[in-house]
């Protein structure tokens, strides 16, 4: 067999897998909608300084002549009590929310996966029980309460909030990977790799981990939404992004005082939170369908 044909064939196999995945994902129009909305949100957040009408409103800016204006063509979402454009601040607010979610997931997923793999695969009962009980302890504390405690103990700023939420989040991944691993470790293909004589590291990372990718990715997309809402809750009670920076939660909190008359100050940031969470959830549904084994 000629060499180039083999390479082409391996490449084709990968490409077919990808387009088949996309087919299954896109069969659900809502998932595609979620993905589209998310891409728009991310682009908007990244390009915020260039696309928002009043980028300077994201900082310490006041213009009392234009304070508390209802939505209009000049200010799509109206203005707040010091005259800042709510629309611009919402777009900038997305930056903090998405950054928070991305950092928390990056910090909490790897240790969770590692511990879950080890606990699920090891034959030493004490190690398995040890890891899983510690996980349970972390899961027993409501995340908001622990994050509150940590953030309050240190100082209330975004970095501390990220650390606090990450500390709360790894056990979920540990649990997930543990349950997948402990069922996979009795699959024949794992037994076969063991009997062939490969090392433990290989079995964990090459034989088992690739089979966890589906559930992990699905959980990550769903969790992005949860982390964003948790971050918003923390900043709602004043423990997150500090003014004058525009945190979505902070904006809802400030705006809530003005309800119902000056409704736009709270409603638009709240809708913004809802929109991003909803799109993450819709994507999660699509991913679940994508990784599901199909039977005819």
């Amino acid at each position: 067999m000629p060499k180039n044909e083999i390479a082409a064939s391996a490449f084709t196999a990968k490409r077919i897998n990808i387009s088949k995945g996309w087919y299954k994902f896109s069969r659900n129009p809502l998932s595609v909608l979620g993905l589209t909305v998310l891409i728009i949100i991310v682009l908007a957040a990244v390009l915020a300084p260039y696309i928002t009408p009043y980028p300077e409103h994201a900082g310490p800016y006041t213009n009392f002549r234009e304070s508390s204006l209802p939505p209009s063509l000049k200010h799509f979402f109206g203005t707040d009590t010091v005259g800042r454009d709510v629309f611009s601040r919402v777009i900038f607010g997305y930056r903090f929310s998405l950054l928070l979610a991305a950092v928390v997931i990056t910090l909490s997923v790897p240790p969770g996966i590692l511990l879950g793999l080890v606990a699920g695969y090891t034959r030493r009962k004490w190690l398995e029980v040890g890891i899983m009980r510690i996980t349970d302890i972390f899961l027993a504390v409501p995340p908001l309460v622990l994050a509150l405690a940590v953030t309050a103990m240190l100082s209330p700023k975004l970095l501390n909030q990220m650390m606090a939420i990450s500390l709360m989040w790894w056990p979920w991944y540990c649990r997930l990977v543990y349950s997948v691993t402990s069922s996979l470790r009795h699959e024949y293909f794992v037994h076969d790799a063991e009997l062939t004589g490969v090392g433990r590291g290989f079995i964990l990372t090459r034989a088992i981990l690739p089979n966890c990718v589906g559930p992990i990715l699905t959980k990550i997309t769903l969790d992005m939404g949860f982390v964003i809402i948790l971050g918003a809750s923390l900043s709602f009670i004043g423990l997150g992004v500090q003014p004058p920076k525009p945190g979505l939660g902070t904006m809802v909190a400030d705006g809530a005082k003005r309800l119902p008359a000056e409704w736009w100050m709270a409603v638009f940031p709240a809708l913004a939170i809802m929109l991003v969470i909803l799109s993450f959830n819709l994507i999660g549904d699509g991913l679940r369908d994508m990784f599901a084994v199909e039977e005819i």
Binding site: S19, K20, Y23, K24, E294, I296
Partner: peptide
């Protein structure tokens, strides 16, 4: 049946 590859 309609699947990714076409119609079965």
């Amino acid at each position: 049946f309609k699947v990714f590859e076409g119609v079965l």
